[in-house]
């Protein structure tokens, strides 16, 4: 019986670690824009490759930024 080949998931680089960010601030829109799609949605963790805690922090920052009209709730691109 041949075992099905085990696909090793490619380990993604943690983008926050590479950017040396310890605290995600809702005012830093340039950083937060990396974590939203072009339609304004928050990117999933499997896409962003950050830790659970960091993803939560990012989500909260994005939502705060949206409240202050720094980021769109949704963009009508298409």
């Amino acid at each position: 019986m041949a075992k099905p080949p085990i696909r090793k998931p490619k380990k993604k680089q943690n983008p926050l670690k590479t950017a040396k960010v310890e605290h995600v601030d809702y005012k830093d829109t340039a950083l937060l824009r990396k974590f939203i799609s072009d339609r304004g949605k928050i990117r999933a963790r499997r896409v962003t490759g950050v830790s659970v805690q960091q993803q939560r922090e990012i989500a909260r920052a994005v939502k705060n930024a949206r409240e202050m009209a720094l980021l769109p709730y949704s963009s009508s691109a298409r």
Partner: peptide, 16 residues
């Protein structure tokens, strides 16, 4: 520029 209109205004003066 605001990401969306607030009170029909497209811009705002931000202060922290």
């Amino acid at each position: 520029r605001l990401a969306y209109e607030i009170n029909k205004k497209a811009e705002g003066i931000y202060a922290v």
